[in-house]
């Protein structure tokens, strides 16, 4: 078995919580912090911590605005994040393929 795809997996995305965030954002142009938190059933602190890691890796951009006089935090994938996520999914598919019984 070729261990190469497994070794190439992006550790930033590989963590369960961050994988959830990346998956949600990959399918949507942008999502609010609240939408992500509710959909992934995370606490504010947990989501903030994961978002910070993803931001530091350059995968997610966060913008703050106001809607009906209330602060609104919106998250979206950066081009680098989209590329990294597509690469991660490709590697997972390779792992599944190479371990399929022939």
């Amino acid at each position: 078995m070729n261990p190469e795809p497994f070794l190439q997996l992006d550790r930033v995305i590989h963590e369960k919580g961050r994988l959830g965030i990346m998956s949600m954002l990959a399918a949507s142009p942008e999502l609010s912090f609240t939408e992500l938190r509710d959909a992934l059933e995370m606490t504010d602190g947990n989501l903030t911590s994961h978002m910070r890691t993803l931001q530091e890796a350059g995968y997610v951009s966060v913008s703050k605005s106001y809607e009906n006089n209330r602060p609104l935090t919106t998250c979206s994938l950066t081009p680098a994040g989209k590329k990294a996520f597509a690469n991660y999914v490709n590697l997972l598919e390779q792992i599944v393929q190479q371990n399929k019984p022939k």
Binding site: M24, A26, A27, A39, V89, I95, V96, N99
Partner: peptide, 21 residues
């Protein structure tokens, strides 16, 4: 290893569907 990779892919698929469709 196949199991977790397949499970991860399933999780990704489910979340993407939930997010977008």
């Amino acid at each position: 290893e196949t199991n977790w990779a397949a499970e991860h892919l399933q999780v990704i698929r489910t979340l993407m569907e939930r997010s977008a469709v």
